[in-house]
Amino acid sequence: MTEQEKLRPEPTTTSEVSRRNFLGALATAGGAALAVAALDQFAADPQAALAAYEEQIVRGTLNQGQSSADLRALDVLERMRLELLRALQKQPSERRWVMVIDLRKCIGCHACTIGCVAENKLPPGVVYRPVIEEEYGTYPNVARRFIPRPCMQCENPPCVPVCPVRATFTNAEGIVEMDYERCIGCRYCLTACPYSARVSDFGFTYTEEIPVIQGLVGTAAADDYERAPNFEYGKQYAREGRNSPVGNARKCHFCQHRILEGVLPACVTTCIGRATLFGDANDPESLVAELIASPNVLRLREELGTEPRVYYLK
């Protein structure tokens, strides 16, 4: 096992999870939000540095003297990012990540689908977040609806208990994770997920069958982007042979590796309809907390008692 693997959170021991996530928060404070130039100062006077850091967030986005209500004047992406940074200062177990998908704003563009594919370097046939389209009504009274479907990160995830080897588990933040190295690829969890949110990685690549010919770029350079690692679960998975995640169950993980860096999930940042919203539902001031209290909220297949953490607004 590498250093990293040792560190990966075990399903039940929250302390470990919090450690790592806490480090993520640290990384955020140290790298993502704070101008790195300020790091020296950080070392010298941490208290002052933290204050400076907070101020910087504010300066970066708000004018002095404006209250947090003015976050509303920002792109929701920025508002959510600032809320994310706030949430990262809490213990992992104290945050409750949820996703809110406003179907009124979803235009069925599939940017989230492809953004996710690109972020996680998903091979052919692996998709974490398809967008389902449907048409109903009759001409000229027609309607079309677009329903993005990430993993619901169920609070009672039916996919978890079926796994014979605990390769999938809910971490302290409520995200249902995969342990690729452990997964034996039995696909039981695929059958158990009521949302078809899990898929299997069958080891395809997009460019493998394309000829390498002098005079053409060919696969020699053309599949570099496919071979570059993804950063799922804070590790690096380059696509090599039949190594994991080939042969494993795969699923949306709320882009945990990004969240911990203070970056919103890829499907959230790239949602051009601003239909996909993300945040800590335990933060009463957060956008998502506000939204999941609205009367037009619903969750998919709620009758199954899975308690999804993905909410839809109708």
């Binding site: 080897v165 390769a167 452990r182 997964c183 034996i184």
Partner: peptide, 17 residues
Amino acid sequence: GHFERFWHVYLYADFGS
């Protein structure tokens, strides 16, 4: 998908499954 890991079922057994 990874039959070479079948022994995981003994080592990491989850009897909920």
